[in-house]
């Protein structure tokens, strides 16, 4: 398999930059895998887990809290709102996030904000079940 360049950045820092074999991106419209020579795509991310395999076969998983992914010319850039290595993510933090989201749903007045909050809550619950926490 051929490698391509992947950058994962959050506002605070650059988390990963280097050659990778494949990356699974959690987009709002479903997960997709990026390999070399992927068509240019610009996607919004939902809270979820980015799985990637670097060119030496090492696998890593990172939790991202939404953001954007941009694929062009064999460069994948993920602008994550927040990114945490899966090993560092603790159940308590995720539970807190879910609780906050539940409150958002309860507090939202306008229909569209309520819907957006509900969507977010749904996504967070999915993450939780996916990780079997």
């Amino acid at each position: 398999m051929a490698a391509f360049h992947f950058d994962l950045v959050s506002p605070e820092r650059l988390l990963f930059s280097g050659a990778v074999e494949s990356v699974v991106v959690p987009s709002v419209e479903g997960e997709f895998m990026v390999l070399k020579d992927h068509a240019p795509v610009m996607a919004m991310l939902k809270p979820g887990v980015v799985h990637f395999e670097d060119d030496k076969g090492g696998k890593r998983n990172l939790f991202v809290r939404g953001g954007f992914a941009d694929v062009a010319n064999n460069v994948l850039t993920i602008l994550a709102e927040q990114a945490i290595a899966l090993e560092d993510l603790d159940t308590a933090a995720l539970d807190l996030e879910i609780k906050n989201a539940e409150e958002d749903v309860a507090d939202a007045k306008a229909e569209d904000t309520r819907q957006r909050a509900a969507e977010r809550l749904e996504q967070l619950r999915e993450v939780k079940t996916a990780l079997k926490l």
């Binding site: 950058d7 950045v9 506002p11 820092r13 650059l14 610009m42 941009d70 850039t77 602008l79």
Partner: peptide
């Protein structure tokens, strides 16, 4: 550390 994000953001936005 914040620079890469801002730079990439610019690039994506320009695109």
């Amino acid at each position: 550390a914040a620079r890469p994000y801002a730079e990439r953001m610019d690039a994506v936005l320009a695109n």
